[in-house]
Design a protein around this nucleic acid. Structure first.
Length: 728
DNA sequence: AAGCCCTCGTTTTTT
DNA sequence: ACGAGGGCTT
């Protein structure tokens, strides 16, 4: 046990053994981050005798949590990780809330609403408030509310600070939405983070209890924490102050979801006695790949400077693929994969194809199929988001929590019971008049004065629910689900339909059933329905790895974070696609971090590809090559035929460099400034609307404009990308 | 109550 | 191009 830390490099060992006090580890890509975390946990338990139950380790994905638990078990022996509090933020706090949430006026059987459920509830709120979806799209409202929650702004605070008309509307919706969630005895994803904060604020005794429990706190991917996560961990750590955060500011790619990069950038200010360790030795990629990565990321302003140091060989140069259109791009990618798999005896699992937007996956997928290359697309429609699965799960959710009206509305007429919108409307009115829940209204239907046909339909529905509830009290999840399928005839209905689609649905439901059986086998106690549902609610498509299968992986760059592949294709490297439309300098830096993430996934070899023309929303668009290609030193980028890309006359005509890599050398940067724009000019922006230029900085492609917009306040935009119209 | 067509809006999405 | 949602028809 004492030599546990001998497997680590000196810096890794120092970081892993710094157990007391606040510690930040800046872990560059491929520098052994997970190793440091797991060895630190093993060290705490194995060498220092800390009970596993006093350690809290928070991650962003179930997969990461599972891997860490597994590796701790490998280090200390099977079962050692048993008492550890290790999991995603959401699952750990869901578990804690089950314990304490009655103090906030919810019951422990609360439902967890996914984003579809929450969207539909928001729609309902907007309808009730007579706010048309034409004036504000639901997605926008959902985004505003989620952002507010992530920043721990409660409805009352939001209302107080609502400046303009849209904000006023959003504040009304937010308020009603929060109330309705509570009526449903439901929490959305964001609530799982902010309800603990409310709990700690109103019930300090709970906070104290948990502060005492969690003597050691570890947080993975700290650069991706949002304000709520920052606050909740800070509160928990404030007693013992053993907070250990690991992250890489250069890989922060979720700011659009509320992740706040300043949490990691300011850690030193929060904890002045914090020790910092930088892990920059990279064990994953070739020297050439790291040279590319370093060169790209060095162009960002807002970052903690660090350069990855190669521990491996120099490796091959990057290869630039240039195509006429996206079809040809995909074909060239397919050709390369075929060629390399034959010549170098590489498995298909060695290859990954990355893209910026999901829309790009279609053509790639078609081509893979035509070339008969085995492939898997990650992050398509998640298993749990499929209609038939959501329907079946809605039954379970409703059996668990009969205030969950989202689930009720899903299943009341599924399978069809001839209960339509009109009948549901009547029931709603009935429920509202008497101040009872919708389900109570259904159970009182015989006294409601409805048509006999409706009364019969409703009572047959409620008898299914009641019988399932009875089974759930003493039986297993499997038994409940099985009885559901028998009573509703779901499986046989789908089988009878006998179309490819219906059979696929049938198989999916079978799969759910075997998952339930699996769960019941591992959790023999009755009354585990809540846990099963929680697993489902917080599971995602990215959790399963299936490393045994041999296929090419296709995924968005976001989905690739944390993974690695010998050969990586980064496709669609075009201006306005990757980088995607950027209006503010901050956004450009995030796009660059995203590109950095893509580059650092590769172990041996990178292909960069772009197409001169691409369909967007059904229209062909002319494309310009991404600036990111030029941000890599020209001498390590070769053309497909092997020539040095960016060399002078020798290079193929079509691959001539169009912009100098460094702004100091070469010709003048192409002018992208807007004609006739100066201080005071009135401009129009597609998103922010009309505004006035307050200030201009920089020149050419680097020019930035500070603009005061009527609706959205002050913004600093890059003129090149902002697509501003100068108003007369 | 169910089926059909039109319109709208389409970045990324660990949970 | 394409799917989801909403309103209209049967």
């Amino acid at each position: 046990m004492a030599d546990l830390l001998q497997d680590l490099s000196a810096v890794q060992r120092d970081a892993a053994s710094a157990t007391e006090g606040p510690v930040m580890v800046l872990a560059g890509a491929g520098s052994g981050k997970t190793r440091v975390i797991t060895y630190r946990i093993a060290n705490l338990i194995g060498n220092q005798g800390v009970p596993a139950g006093n350690i809290l380790a928070l991650t962003f994905t179930n997969k990461a949590a599972g891997e860490m638990r597994h590796r701790v078990d490998q280090l200390l022996g099977p079962g050692s990780s048993g008492g550890l509090w290790i999991g995603t933020f959401h699952s750990v706090f869901a578990r804690l809330l089950r314990e304490y949430i009655d103090r906030l006026g919810y019951s422990r059987s609360f439902s967890i609403f996914d984003s579809d459920d929450s969207k539909s509830l928001i729609r309902q709120c907007m309808a009730e408030l007579n706010i048309s979806q034409d004036s504000v799209p639901v997605n926008t409202v959902q985004g505003i509310i989620s952002k507010a929650k992530n920043s721990f702004i409660l409805p009352a605070d939001f209302h107080r600070n609502a400046a303009d008309y849209n904000q006023q509307k959003a504040s009304q919706i937010y308020e009603l939405y929060a109330r309705k969630l509570k009526e449903n005895n439901a929490l959305d994803f964001d609530d799982l983070l902010i309800k603990p904060l409310e709990l700690f604020g109103n019930h300090p005794e709970v906070l104290e209890e948990l502060q005492e429990l969690f003597r050691y706190i570890l947080i993975d991917e700290y650069q991706d924490t949002n304000r709520a996560q920052y606050l909740v961990t800070k509160m928990l750590a404030s007693r013992h102050r053993n907070i250990f955060v690991v992250g890489d500011d250069a890989q922060s790619i979720y700011s659009w979801r509320g992740a706040d990069i300043s949490n990691i950038l300011n850690f030193q200010d929060d904890y002045e006695d914090a020790r910092t360790f930088k892990l920059v030795e990279n064990y994953r990629s070739t020297g050439t790949i790291l040279q590319a990565a370093n060169s790209v990321i060095s162009r960002n302003q807002r970052q903690i400077k660090k350069e990855l140091v190669a521990k491996g060989a120099t490796g091959e140069p990057l290869t630039l693929i240039e195509a006429f259109n996206e079809r040809q791009e995909a074909e060239k990618v397919g050709d390369w994969i075929r060629k390399l798999s034959l010549e170098k005896q590489l498995d298909f699992r060695s290859f990954a194809i990355f893209y910026r937007t999901n829309a790009q996956s279609r053509v790639l997928e078609d081509t893979m199929r035509q070339h008969r290359l085995p492939y898997k697309i990650f992050g398509s429609v998640s298993f749990y988001k499929r209609k038939e699965i959501k329907d079946a799960v809605a039954y379970l959710r409703f059996v668990q929590n009969d205030r969950d009206s989202e689930s009720l509305l899903r299943i009341i007429n599924f399978p069809p019971r001839k209960i339509g919108d009109v009948s549901i409307g009547k029931l709603r009115d009935f429920a509202r008049e008497r101040g009872i829940s919708l389900y109570e209204a259904i159970r009182c239907a015989p006294q409601g004065g409805y048509q006999q046909r409706l009364v019969n339909a409703l009572s047959s529905f409620s008898s299914v629910i009641e019988s399932l509830r009875e089974i759930a009290e003493t039986g297993t999840v499997y038994e409940v689900l099985n009885s559901l399928f028998v009573q509703t005839g779901l499986l046989s209905l789908l089988q009878a339909e006998n179309t490819p689609e219906s059979m696929a649905r049938h198989d999916n439901l079978q799969e759910l059933l075997s998952m339930a059986r699996d769960f019941s086998d591992h959790n023999p106690d009755a009354g585990m329905l809540g846990d099963f549902l929680e697993n489902i609610a917080l599971a995602s498509d990215y959790d399963e790895t299936q490393e045994s299968d041999n296929f090419v992986s296709l995924m968005t760059v976001h989905a690739s974070k944390g993974l690695e592949f010998p050969v990586v294709f980064i496709t669609g490297l075009e201006e306005r696609l990757f980088p995607l439309n950027c209006y503010e300098p901050e956004q450009m830096e995030e796009e660059r971090r995203l590109f950095y993430v893509a580059v650092t996934r590769a172990r041996e070899k990178i292909f960069l590809s772009w197409a001169q023309s691409r369909y967007l929303y059904g229209q062909p668009q002319h494309c310009l090559r991404s600036k990111f290609i030029n941000e890599i030193d020209g001498d390590i980028v070769h053309t497909e035929s092997g020539r040095v890309h960016g060399g002078g006359a020798g290079a193929a005509v079509s691959v001539r460099r169009t912009e100098p890599v460094r702004h100091s050398g070469g010709g003048a940067p192409p002018v992208r400034e807007k004609e006739g724009m100066r201080k005071g000019t009135r401009v129009h922006h597609a998103v922010f609307g009309p505004g006035t230029v307050l200030e201009l900085q920089g020149r050419g492609t680097q020019q930035k404009a500070k603009i005061l917009f009527r609706g959205s306040g002050e913004k600093t935009l890059m003129v090149q990308y902002a697509n501003l119209k100068v108003l007369p």
